[in-house]
């Protein structure tokens, strides 16, 4: 068998810049970045895209994706994305937000951008903590989960239940696609990409707002090794945050 026949079948997508990331070992942001990059390549959107970065560990996403980008204040990416899309309706507009950014400080912006059916895609990375600031309690922190601001574990009576964003978003009229996937396993990563593609297509086809929640690990702030963190997604997160498609207008045969 000749080496010349050998084919490179898995490599960095062109839309992802060739440089090491600042993320901790086992952090799933890198997987999410890669899926976005693969789709930008496959759907030939790289040259048409404008990324709205957000605040959190993924604030440096603009260093990793080879597309135009603007930085939004904490939680405001869907509003900034609205402004970008209204100003340049021919461009592909993408926000990438964590759970503190999207489900807490940015709750108003995400809800209303979704409800208006803005033709933007939102990649929502849910790892149940504020990562960059050091692992504080997030709106998605599971009951009993210990963080630096709920050292005794999140208490349902005082801090409420973790917010299920995809369920909420899927109820809003302007949403064309809403799905929750997980980045813990090969199978789930493949599904995540499928959902992201759907959400991207909904924008390209002018169908409406696209929303994909990605259950992700934050081994550092969960204070566990990456392999264990992936197990935690399966054992603790997925039972509370069920995976699946919550809304898909393409299946219902029409634009929203």
């Amino acid at each position: 068998m000749s080496e010349l026949q050998e084919k490179l079948v898995f490599d960095r997508p062109e839309s992802v810049i060739d440089r090491p990331t600042h993320y901790c070992p086992g952090c799933h942001h890198g997987v999410a970045h890669r899926l976005v990059g693969e789709l930008l390549d496959e759907m030939k959107l790289r040259e048409e895209s404008i990324l709205i970065g957000s605040i959190g560990c993924s604030v440096f996403l603009y260093n990793y994706l080879d597309i135009d980008a603007v930085e939004a204040p904490h939680g405001r990416a869907p509003a900034v994305g609205t402004g970008v899309k209204r100003a340049r309706p021919d461009k592909f507009v993408l926000t990438y937000q964590g759970d503190g950014d999207l489900a807490s400080i940015g709750m108003a912006e995400i809800m209303h951008a979704a409800n208006r059916g803005e033709r933007i895609c939102v990649v929502f990375v849910n790892n149940t903590v504020y990562g960059m600031t050091g692992g504080q309690m997030a709106p998605t922190t599971l009951v009993g989960q210990r963080t630096t601001t709920c050292p005794g574990g999140r208490c349902r009576d005082k801090e409420g239940l973790p917010i299920k964003m995809t369920e909420i978003i899927s109820q809003l009229g302007g949403v064309a696609f809403a799905g929750r996937a997980s980045l813990d396993s090969v199978k789930n990563i493949r599904t995540a990409k499928k959902y992201l593609r759907k959400a991207f297509e909904c924008q390209v086809q002018d169908r409406g707002f696209g929303f994909v929640e990605l259950l992700s690990a934050c081994p550092t702030n969960w204070k566990m090794p990456p392999v264990k963190a992936n197990e935690r997604i399966r054992e603790e997160m997925i039972p509370y945050f069920p995976l699946g498609v919550y809304k898909d207008v393409t299946e219902e045969g029409g634009a929203c």
């Binding site: 026949q5 898995f10 990331t21 993320y23």
Partner: peptide, 22 residues
């Protein structure tokens, strides 16, 4: 086997996968 599972789960694009056509 060249299944690329390792590359798919790698968060750091640290794995390249090669296959022969066969």
């Amino acid at each position: 086997t060249g299944c690329a599972s390792c590359a798919l789960i790698c968060p750091d694009l640290a794995i390249r996968v090669y296959r022969t056509p066969k």
